[in-house]
Each structure stands twice: as structure tokens, then as C-alpha cells.
Nucleic acid binder design. Structure first.
Lengths: 122, 122
DNA sequence: ATAGATGCAAAGGGTTTGCACTTGA
DNA sequence: TCAAGTGCAAACCCTTTGCATCTAT
């Protein structure tokens, strides 16, 4: 991915405009506004390339298609609405993780996903 | 799922014998020892039924296919080893989750996965 | 006997890939 | 120009579903 294409620019623009993690399909929907005819395969190829070059990071939500968001954010977690399925960034983190790890285990990271209802669906 | 079939018994047996969370394919592999000819569709149907009746619970690991384990364990989370891929039960939980939720959001559950190296791989 | 459960294969949904065409540099 | 990038459709993988057959009760 060395060239600047209309499609690639549209995809990057989508992530610049959106703060919350997006699935490939959501990226496609938003991108097509500024780049009609864009194909889902191109979204997948570009998202993968953008992750490889460190511009995006994957947000892995259990049981959901993978989503992506801009890299470089401060440490945070996510909240998924059980009603609309939307994913929202949650600031802050929890403490006490070290105390949960069995002796001999080395902790180097964690993923936390909160579930419930978002403000609109509640 | 109101009847006791050979297939259903074999599937339950697998979960009784295994403590670790299993994917549908792993359940199939183990079940076929005691029930040759068992189909993957039957595994999916029975696992789903066993979850619905509360005998199994889904273990959602980000980026991994869903796994299932016996219900009734005390609330716990999981540790995944980055080296061997193994999943380990982690006792305990974290506090302060309510404070992380934006106003208007309703929290009703959470998933926490720790990453690092298990005692054997460390 | 008969509704429930199974096995197979086909259908779905999301993701990847092959290939001819388009396009940025 | 001409290889990188795209669009389309087919291929894949995992999961679900339709349907004829089998079976627990």
C-alpha cells in the first residue's frame, strides 16, 4: 500500500471523523459517501495495511466481528450495548489486576469489555 | 432438547471430563471417541441447548472462537498465555467498574481477559 | 406411534483471494 | 508506462438451517 488512492483516503477520513471503533462494514458504509463504488474487499485490504503500519489498532470484541480504531489513544476500554450492538470507548481502567494473577504467571496486558445499555437505549 | 440421546450424553461427558473451556470443534473431536459418527451440527445444537438451560456458559475470549465450560463456577475470569495459547481460570474480580461507566449507561456485565505468560512458559 | 433429535448437505454471514481492469506516480 | 491497487465474484471458514431418516419415550 504505497500509493494514495481515492479509496484509501476515504477510509482514513472515516477513522479520523469517528472516535469509536468501527467494523469493516461500518467503514464501508461511511466511506461510500465520499467514494461511491468502493468495495468491501478494498476496505479489508486497506484496514489490514493500516494496522500493519500502526495507524490503526484492532479492537477485539468477543463474539463480534473485529473492529478498528485510531492507534495512539491513551489506555482505555470499551462498552458494548446489548440493545443496539454499538461499541463505545470508556476512559479509565481498573486496579488490582496484579493481585489476581497466580504465582509464576507474568502479566503483560489485559482486555476489559463492559456490557449493558448505552444512554440512548437505556 | 428433552430426550437423552447417545450424542447428548457424549457431549455432556466431554464437559464433565474437561475443566478447560472448549470450542465446538474440540467438543466434536473428544465426543467422537465415545460416539462415532457424531456431526458438528449436533454439537452446535446441543451446546446451544445446554447454554440455554444453564448447564454451560460461554467463555468469550477476544479474537478467539467462542468456547464453553460448565456453569456453576464462582465468578471468575481468564488468563491467556501468549506463548502456548492456553486458557486458565483466574479467581477473583476487579472493583470500580461502575465508576467507569458514562452517565446514562446501564452496566449489567463484563468480561476480563488477562494476557501474559503462564507459569510453564514464563 | 410419533414428536424430538440426528446427519448430511446446502445455505448464511463475514473474510480472503484470484484475476482482469484501472490508475497513481 | 506499468506495477500497485481496485472491483467483482468465487472461494473459504465457521455456524446455522432444511429435510429425510432415525429413535427415545
Amino acid at each position: 500500500m504505497k500509493r494514495n488512492t481515492r479509496q484509501r483516503d476515504a477510509i482514513r477520513q472515516v477513522f479520523d471523523d469517528e472516535r469509536d471503533p468501527l467494523s469493516p462494514q461500518e467503514v464501508l458504509d461511511r466511506s461510500q459517501t465520499h467514494c461511491p463504488g468502493l468495495g468491501i474487499a478494498t476496505v479489508y485490504r486497506n484496514v489490514k495495511a493500516l494496522v500493519d503500519e500502526g495507524w490503526l489498532v484492532a479492537v477485539l470484541v468477543p463474539g463480534e466481528p473485529d473492529r478498528y480504531e485510531l492507534a495512539g489513544k491513551v489506555h482505555h476500554h470499551h462498552f458494548q450495548c446489548r440493545a443496539c450492538g454499538g461499541l463505545f470507548d470508556i476512559d479509565g481502567c481498573v486496579a488490582g489486576l496484579d493481585g489476581m494473577v497466580p504465582s509464576g504467571f507474568q502479566l503483560d496486558g489485559h482486555e476489559l469489555t463492559l456490557y449493558g445499555r448505552c444512554a440512548r437505549c437505556a
